[in-house]
Simulated assay, not measured.
Amino acid sequence: MNTNTHNERIAKMTFASVYPHYVAKVEKKGRTKQELHEVITWLTGFDDEQIADLADRKVTFETFFASASLNANAPLITGMICGYRIEEIEDPLTRNVRYLDKLVDELAKGRKMEKILRA
């Protein structure tokens, strides 16, 4: 399903290259950057300052998730994203990036925050 090339490409992508797209996506749908940060914080444990620092330093997703404290409820994030069923993604890093993508999607789609945060 996921090729090594695909996983390597995701690992080398920078958080900074995707972050502005996340912001634009949620703001276009009437959500806020603060709500986006709440979702990122829930998944990774990073606070606003750390999120900004990681973006400024242009860290790869590999470094980003190596520094994160993944939420214990992250495996509750299921469903399809980018044509892949999240719970079937074997590569841990690729799965973590897809968790983040899925949360951003749910935020942009207007889902209630307590549902997004698997409360």
Rank of each mutant, 00 (worst) to 15 (best):
A66H: 13
P75E: 10
G83Q: 12
R85I: 05
F65G: 02
A74G: 01
D47N: 09
A52Q: 09
D47S: 05
S69N: 07
G79F: 08
I77L: 12
D47L: 02
R57K: 13
E49D: 11
F65N: 04
S67R: 15
F61R: 04
T63Q: 05
F64L: 01
F65S: 03
A55H: 11
C82T: 15
G79L: 08
F64Q: 00
M80W: 14
F65Q: 03
D53W: 11
A72H: 02
F46C: 07
A55Y: 08
D48L: 01
I81A: 09
E62N: 13
Q50S: 13
P75T: 11
G79P: 02
D53N: 10
D47A: 04
E49F: 09
A68W: 01
F61W: 04
R85L: 02
P75Y: 04
L76E: 11
Q50D: 14
R85Y: 07
L76T: 10
C82S: 15
S69W: 07
T78L: 04
A55P: 09
T63W: 03
N71R: 09
A72S: 04
V59S: 01
A68M: 00
S69I: 05
L70T: 06
D56E: 09
F65M: 06
A74R: 01
A66K: 15
L54R: 11
A74F: 00
F61A: 01
T63L: 04
L70G: 06
D56N: 11
C82E: 15
A68N: 02
E62H: 12
A74W: 00
Q50G: 14
V59D: 03
N73K: 12
F65I: 03
Y84R: 14
L76M: 14
G83T: 12
L54A: 06
F46A: 00
K58P: 01
E62C: 03
E49Y: 09
Q50H: 14
N73L: 10
I77D: 12
N73V: 03
Q50C: 12
A66Q: 15
N71F: 02
I81R: 08
T60H: 09
I77N: 12
K58V: 03
T78Y: 07
E49G: 11
D47I: 00
Y84A: 11
F61S: 02
A74L: 00
I81S: 09
D47H: 02
D53G: 09
F46T: 00
I51V: 07
F61C: 08
T60L: 08
G79W: 02
G83I: 13
A66F: 10
F46W: 07
L70W: 06
F46N: 03
A68H: 00
C82H: 15
A72G: 06
F61Q: 07
E49L: 10
R57P: 05
D48S: 05
C82K: 15
M80G: 14
K58N: 10
G79S: 06
T60G: 04
A72N: 05
T78D: 01
S67P: 04
F46V: 01
A55N: 08
T60S: 12
I51S: 08
A66W: 07
E49S: 10
A66M: 12
S67C: 14
A66N: 14
V59L: 03
